[in-house]
Amino acid sequence: MAEKKFTRDELAKYNGDGEKPHYMAIDGIVYDVTHSPAWKNGIHHGYQAGYDLTDALYKVSPHKDRVLANLPKVGTLVGEE
Score class of each variant (00 low, 15 high):
residue 16 G to W: 03
residue 63 H to N: 06
residue 32 D to N: 08
residue 57 L to Y: 05
residue 11 L to G: 01
residue 24 M to V: 15
residue 5 K to H: 12
residue 45 H to V: 04
residue 42 G to V: 04
residue 79 G to V: 13
residue 29 I to K: 05
residue 64 K to M: 14
residue 47 Y to S: 01
residue 72 P to V: 00
residue 68 L to I: 08
residue 76 T to I: 11
residue 65 D to F: 07
residue 48 Q to S: 11
residue 14 Y to G: 05
residue 34 T to D: 10
residue 67 V to G: 11
residue 45 H to A: 13
residue 55 D to C: 08
residue 45 H to Q: 11
residue 43 I to V: 11
residue 61 S to L: 10
residue 81 E to S: 00
residue 42 G to E: 11
residue 78 V to W: 03
residue 69 A to F: 14
residue 47 Y to T: 08
residue 11 L to R: 02
residue 80 E to I: 03
residue 65 D to S: 10
residue 63 H to T: 04
residue 75 G to R: 06
residue 64 K to P: 12
residue 53 L to V: 08
residue 50 G to A: 06
residue 49 A to T: 06
residue 73 K to M: 00
residue 41 N to K: 10
residue 35 H to D: 15
residue 26 I to A: 00
residue 50 G to R: 07
residue 1 M to R: 05
residue 50 G to E: 09
residue 63 H to L: 13
residue 14 Y to F: 15
residue 42 G to I: 04
residue 6 F to I: 04
residue 3 E to I: 15
residue 81 E to V: 04
residue 52 D to C: 12
residue 58 Y to N: 02
residue 66 R to W: 12
residue 75 G to A: 03
residue 9 D to H: 12
residue 21 P to V: 03
residue 59 K to S: 09
residue 66 R to Q: 10
residue 53 L to C: 08
residue 16 G to S: 02
residue 74 V to H: 02
residue 26 I to T: 13
residue 40 K to T: 15
residue 55 D to K: 12
residue 75 G to D: 02
residue 52 D to G: 09
residue 61 S to V: 09
residue 51 Y to F: 09
residue 47 Y to N: 08
residue 52 D to V: 03
residue 68 L to F: 00
residue 28 G to N: 11
residue 76 T to L: 10
residue 48 Q to C: 05
residue 37 P to C: 00
residue 41 N to I: 01
residue 30 V to S: 09
residue 6 F to N: 02
residue 42 G to R: 08
residue 68 L to V: 01
residue 80 E to V: 06
residue 59 K to R: 12
residue 40 K to I: 11
residue 3 E to T: 15
residue 62 P to I: 06
residue 42 G to Q: 05
residue 15 N to V: 07
residue 6 F to E: 07
residue 28 G to C: 11
residue 19 E to S: 13
residue 62 P to H: 00
residue 70 N to T: 06
residue 41 N to L: 10
residue 50 G to V: 13
residue 50 G to L: 12
residue 20 K to V: 03
residue 50 G to I: 13
residue 72 P to R: 02
residue 61 S to Q: 07
residue 66 R to I: 14
residue 36 S to A: 03
residue 64 K to Y: 14
residue 39 W to I: 00
residue 60 V to G: 05
residue 34 T to H: 06
residue 40 K to H: 15
residue 62 P to V: 02
residue 41 N to H: 15
residue 21 P to S: 03
